[in-house]
Nucleic acid binder design. Sequence first.
DNA 1: TTGCAGGGGTCAA
DNA 2: TTGACCCCTGCA
Length: 294
Amino acid sequence: MLYRGLEIEEGPDFIIIGGIKDFDAVHTFECGQCFRWIRETDGSYTGVVRNRVGNVKFRDGLMTIGYSSFKDFQDIWYDYLDLGRDYSSIKKELAKDEIMEKAIAFGYGIRLLRQDPWEALISFIISANNRIPMIMKVVAAISNIYGEELTAGGKSYYTFPGSDKLQGANLEELEACRGGFRCKYILNTAGKVAKCVVELDMLGRLATGDARELLTRLPGVGNKVADCTLLYSGAKYDVFPTDVWVKRVMEELYLKREASFKEIQTFAHEYFGHLAGFAQQYLFYYARENRIGV
DNA sequence: TTGCAGGGGTCAA
DNA sequence: TTGACCCCTGCA
């Protein structure tokens, strides 16, 4: 059958999708935007989105999503994987200099996942002064303890717990997830989100600056975490999350000198405009994998 | 084997 | 503007 220009074939416990361009599983799941997709030995990735488990494989232009039905594709995967967006035109518009050309050629299959803003928020609070394998472990531990169990392929998976659930956690128990000094941020942020002091669902409707300001009211959330939350939940694409890697690559390749975070933000805003978020992701992946500026 | 630095940032002084 | 911060890993 045909769904929004994609050819879908439905199996007993999987679907096959044809007609997807500009996608690569490694690029998308390992470019640093998400922390819940586990690479399997066959090169596929298994993850939990909302209350569904999925196993994504992409080969020879065909995507297979295991543990999923066509309805799951309509309800979750199409949006989550951002399949409705024309990345070819984005890349064409961004590849206006040699640096971006290289970065895009390197991470040509990156798609910005439209993650749950709450999960992205907590994940990036955990990312502060931390490393990716560690972030993944902490997010998994929180899900295992506070999330709900799902079963797929004879294995257990866990949903990411909502703010209502996490706000009721006690600090000591949460600290068993090895989040360290970030645990108190998580707990306090969960309380504020559960009480709707900050409404995550309305972020997309605010001006970018206002959305960022709102998020930074939450404990453990500065500009970097706020921008990651906005970008990786698909709320805003004109942000340019600037961490040490992005700072390095911008200094080395564009500014040709040391620069402050604010200078880099200003440059990115003017140079990449409404596509700044996409540019950031290509650059980050390129810089980190090639250790640029180290 | 032990010890020490440092990591996708944020907060408080 | 500067250090501390949990916890873990890598490397002397």
